[in-house]
Design a protein around this nucleic acid. Structure first.
Length: 112
DNA sequence: CGGGTGACTTTAC
DNA sequence: CGTAAAGCCACCC
């Protein structure tokens, strides 16, 4: 596999590898990609692929577990609904990161 | 190259 | 809890 040099492509591959029942944050993704400060671009990249079912953009939340991108879905509830389907536990409108936080190097390592 | 933009993050009030 | 401001960086024009 060609190692995607594009920041966007890396985001897509990374997000695509998020296991069900787990979530990650924009900051972690950006940091793993080597650009900690580009956390905003992570969401920007996901916005371009929100139509692609291959990429579970609903598993990406901000550092507090808040569904910051829910309003970009067809319906805001769609994001939370999908997470609930994967046994994600919520604290109000916030994901319980202490139980569901996932980090790339878990099994990613040399995939990218 | 420069300016605008943003699903972030942190600090402050 | 809320809003405000600044820092951050890749992408687009």
């Amino acid at each position: 596999m060609d190692k995607s040099s594009d920041f966007y492509s890396r985001v897509y591959e990374l997000v695509r590898c998020i296991p069900a029942g787990k979530v990650t944050t924009y900051g972690i993704i950006a940091e793993f990609l080597g650009s900690k400060g580009s956390s905003r671009m992570v969401g920007w990249a996901l916005n371009a692929v929100i139509d692609r079912i291959d990429i579970p953009c609903h598993r990406v939340v901000n550092r507090l577990g808040e569904l910051s991108g829910k309003m970009h879905f067809d319906h805001p509830m769609q994001m939370k609904d999908r997470l609930l389907e994967e046994n994600i536990t919520f604290i109000g409108e916030t994901v319980d990161l202490s139980k569901h936080l996932w980090k790339p190097d878990d099994s990613f390592n040399d995939l990218i």
